[in-house]
Structures are given as structure tokens and as C-alpha cells.
Amino acid sequence: MAELVSGVAQSALTAAVPLLLAGTGELVAERAGVLNIGLEGLILAGCIGGFAGAVLGGTAGGLWLGVGGAVVAGMLVAGIFAVAVVYARVDQIVAGMAVNLLAFGAAGTIWHALQDAGRDSLPSGAGFDRIALGGPIVFDQYGLGWLALALVAVTGWMLAKTRAGLVLRALGEAPEACAVAGIDVLRWRFAAVLACGALAGLAGAYLSIMRTHSFAPDMSGGLGFLVLALVIFGRWRIGGLVVGCLGFGLIDAVQQQLQGAGAAGAVSYRLFQALPYLAALFALAVFRGRGNGPAQLGRPWPEER
């Protein structure tokens, strides 16, 4: 029994990490007033960027090139999105859906090219596996998992306690006031979206080079949309987000256990996989209060007259 609990705790934390990474990125963008529905595409860009980097880097540099490639890929796609919504002031939701499509196509094309070149498997021994610490099994996690927790903590501190965090939060509430105070609203929002891209890219690298050691064109599988729900569920606070991500990691771990325990004979495994999304819909319906989001979320600045 203790073994089962420990195993579930381990896979819950493993499943929570990509949610935490992408969620922290989305939180930064949304607090700055930019609703990034393209998060799913940014994660997928990270998946393929990480995979391609790891393949090119080989055993020696695969880990660093993989992680670096994912960050660059995420920021690149985020940059395209940011140009469209921050500078061209395109509707954020619609642009986000376009970015998802673009990233989906680009990731598929790159994957196609990698396969044609016969480079569709990761180099071995490059540090993509769980690191055994010798303690309870729950602490045996992927390297990026620990980095993720550190990044969440740093971002939480940054948002709450630093001037940069104050500026970011103000951008989502009163960009006009920021502009009067001499802050370059557009440049700050652009930077916030890029940061979101970097974190979402890391989430993608975690999925491809760490958790599955592979790539599939649909591997983000709606995770980005789940994260959007979690940010709302967490009421745009880092603490709420962490609770939500851990909770959904647990749901995922339990559904994996149920699948493995033979319940899958009676019910299709596909329904188990849909469980977190159903839960997200429920959570939104039950817990969503009004007036908690940044006042200017989704609105371009300066607004049209």
C-alpha cells in the first residue's frame, strides 16, 4: 500500500511539472494583460524544438541543446504571437488559435524532415532519465522537474515582491497608468509573452525528451488548454495555480493507475485519458467566480476609439 501511494505521488508530481511550467508562463502573460490561447502551440513548439536539439546534440550535448532548443522554439512562436497581438493589436483569442495551427504545422513539418533524415530517436545516455536520489521514490524526478519547481518559486516571488512583478501586474490592470508613469507598455507586454514562450517551451521539452523520450505530432494533446483552465481555477495567483496543477497531476496519476489496474477492460482507456479535461470543465463550472481576472485581460493597448 505504501508503495502504491508513493508510486502515485511520484507520477502525480511528474504529471504536474509540465502544467506548472506552462501555467507559470501563462500566468505571467495574463497578469500583463495578454490572454495566450496559443499556449498549446508554444508547448508543441517546445516538444519539437527540444527533440530536434537533443538529436542534433548527441550524447554529449543533447541535454543542453535539447533544453535550449525548446526554449528558443517556444520564444520564437511566442514572438510571432506577440507581434500580432501586442503591436498589430489583433484579437488575442483568434490570433492564439492561428498560432496553434502554425505551430502544429511547423512541428509536423520538422518531424517529417527528421524522420526522412533517419534521425527520429534520442541519443542514449544524455541525461534524459529520472534522477534517483536514494530517498523516497517520490523524489526520483526528471532534472527539468526540479528546475520547474525552482522557476515557479522564483516567478511567484518576482510577481509578488519585485518592481518588475509590480509592473507586470499593473500592466494587466491599468496600462494607461503604466504609460503615464513612463513604462513602455508594449515592450513589457512583448517581454511577458516571450517569457511565457520560454516556460511553455520548457514544458514541451519535458514532455518530449524527458517524460516520453519521443515525439508525436499530437503529443501536447490539449495540455495547453487544460493549463488555461487551471490559471482561471487558480484565480490568477501562483499559489492557486500550484494547487490546481498538483491536483490535476494527481487526477492523471490516478487515471493511469486505474488504466493499469485492469479497469480498462470494462471502460476504454480513451475515456480515462479524457478524465482531466472533464474535471477541468467541472472545476470551471463549479469554482469560477467573477471579477478575479486582470481587468485588462485580452484587451489591446492603446484601445481603439
Binding site: 496553434n100 505551430a103 502544429f104 504545422g105 511547423a106 509536423g108 517529417h112 524532415a113
Partner: peptide, 10 residues
């Protein structure tokens, strides 16, 4: 690669 079609659409 047919995936290029999605890039064009995006």
C-alpha cells in the same frame, strides 16, 4: 510533407 499545408493556413 503535407504538414506544410497547416503552416500555410496558419
Amino acid at each position: 510533407p503535407h504538414e506544410l499545408g497547416d503552416v500555410v493556413k496558419g
